Simulated scan of single mutants.
Amino acid sequence: MEDAHTATLKLLNKKGYSYFGVYDGHDGESVAKYCGNNLHTRITKDAQFETNLVAAIQNGFLGTDDDLKNDPQFQIDPSGCAGAAVMAIVTPNNEIYVGNAGNSRAVLSEDGIACQMSDDHKPVNPGESKRIQDASGFVEFGKVNGTLALSRAFGDFEFKQTPNLPPKNQIVTAYPDVKMAETKFKSTEFLILACDGIWDCLSSQDVVSFIRKNISENKDLRKVCEDLMDRCLAKDGELGGIGCDNMTIIVVGFLYNKTEKEWYEWMAERYGKKGPEYVE
């Protein structure tokens, strides 16, 4: 288990902003933990945070990766951050900004319908494959240079050494895609952030429906997350494969001035009336 995560309802000195992030590590946990401790600070302190949040998120990702590259501790540390990072900032204006670099995923539940807020960055994706090849890399067996199963990540600096190319255009990059959505009082239920260990096992809609079903059974989100990971875990982990990868999940419920008790009651009442029910 090499993941890290961040969840803060009050983002540093930014009144009304909340931040959530999941960081999926590989070959060690150090880079994932570094991102968990520092990425939100890097984004928040960016000069464009108040005026251009998309640019601040992009700058924060690349800046954090540059900090790692120049940190003597990590120059001899091979650990990367597979699935790198998926994070969300909720603004005082009821907007959600999601930044993603890697194969983790963010999904919004709107009336029980899964609305994907990020795209999985896999080497076989046409845009990712083109960037890799333009930077003198190749895709083999669905992996970057035959070894790395995702095309965007923090660390992994051996894939970021093509001369005369900016960080955004390297074989592997920490540059994120950023998507924005406005939350809606009557339909936006919750946001899911999870690493690929979850999505390897269940679809976006399956996860949304599973969470809604379990809430309708009077389980709180802590128990729901535990049950979801139990559902995804392989029964036998000796051989690896599906159900044996890192698993981290955050579920963010949107209260809209409800109490937590009222929100759970609202969610339970909606299950079976709006959105598909969960089918095992």
Score class of each variant (00 low, 15 high):
residue 57 I to R: 00
residue 25 G to A: 06
residue 56 A to H: 05
residue 49 F to A: 07
residue 85 A to S: 15
residue 36 G to L: 03
residue 82 A to P: 04
residue 57 I to H: 04
residue 43 I to K: 00
residue 26 H to Q: 06
residue 71 D to I: 03
residue 87 M to N: 13
residue 91 T to G: 09
residue 48 Q to H: 13
residue 86 V to R: 02
residue 47 A to R: 14
residue 55 A to W: 00
residue 57 I to K: 02
residue 23 Y to M: 09
residue 98 V to E: 06
residue 87 M to P: 04
residue 22 V to N: 00
residue 51 T to G: 10
residue 74 F to K: 07
residue 18 S to P: 00
residue 60 G to R: 03
residue 96 I to C: 01
residue 68 L to P: 06
residue 11 L to H: 03
residue 70 N to E: 05
residue 36 G to Y: 03
residue 15 K to C: 10
residue 18 S to Q: 03
residue 63 G to N: 08
residue 66 D to M: 13
residue 37 N to Y: 14
residue 51 T to F: 11
residue 100 N to H: 04
residue 75 Q to T: 09
residue 92 P to Y: 07
residue 92 P to F: 08
residue 36 G to I: 04
residue 100 N to L: 05
residue 61 F to S: 11
residue 83 G to P: 08
residue 87 M to L: 15
residue 27 D to H: 15
residue 92 P to I: 06
residue 14 K to T: 00
residue 34 Y to V: 04
residue 79 S to E: 01
residue 52 N to D: 15
residue 81 C to V: 06
residue 25 G to N: 02
residue 18 S to G: 08
residue 92 P to V: 10
residue 49 F to Y: 11
residue 14 K to R: 12
residue 89 I to Q: 00
residue 12 L to V: 13
residue 96 I to F: 01
residue 76 I to F: 12
residue 53 L to Q: 06
residue 49 F to E: 08
residue 15 K to S: 14
residue 69 K to E: 11
residue 48 Q to G: 08
residue 88 A to Q: 01
residue 45 K to Q: 14
residue 88 A to Y: 01
residue 17 Y to S: 01
residue 60 G to Q: 06
residue 69 K to P: 09
residue 34 Y to W: 11
residue 31 V to Y: 10
residue 41 T to G: 10
residue 41 T to N: 13
residue 16 G to N: 09
residue 99 G to V: 08
residue 37 N to S: 14
residue 99 G to D: 04
residue 74 F to M: 10
residue 68 L to Q: 02
residue 68 L to E: 05
residue 13 N to Y: 14
residue 25 G to Y: 05
residue 97 Y to P: 01
residue 34 Y to P: 00
residue 96 I to T: 02
residue 19 Y to R: 00
residue 18 S to L: 01
residue 92 P to Q: 08
residue 57 I to A: 01
residue 47 A to G: 12
residue 30 S to D: 12
residue 80 G to Y: 07
residue 35 C to K: 05
residue 36 G to W: 00
residue 79 S to V: 03
residue 63 G to H: 06
residue 71 D to Q: 09
residue 55 A to R: 09
residue 13 N to F: 13
residue 56 A to N: 07
residue 39 L to D: 00
residue 41 T to D: 13
residue 47 A to F: 13
residue 42 R to S: 13
residue 90 V to C: 10
residue 25 G to S: 06
residue 37 N to D: 15
residue 48 Q to I: 12
residue 39 L to H: 01
residue 19 Y to I: 09
residue 93 N to E: 12
residue 40 H to N: 13
residue 92 P to N: 07
residue 61 F to V: 14
residue 32 A to E: 02
residue 64 T to E: 09
residue 20 F to M: 03
residue 77 D to F: 11
residue 74 F to A: 09
residue 71 D to N: 14
residue 19 Y to A: 11
residue 60 G to M: 08
residue 56 A to K: 02
residue 60 G to D: 10
residue 95 E to N: 11
residue 76 I to P: 10
residue 59 N to Y: 10
residue 27 D to G: 15
residue 27 D to M: 15
residue 77 D to C: 12
residue 39 L to P: 02
residue 51 T to R: 14
residue 46 D to Y: 00
residue 66 D to C: 11
residue 68 L to F: 08
residue 93 N to V: 04
residue 19 Y to T: 07
residue 65 D to L: 01
residue 24 D to W: 04
residue 16 G to R: 08
residue 69 K to S: 12
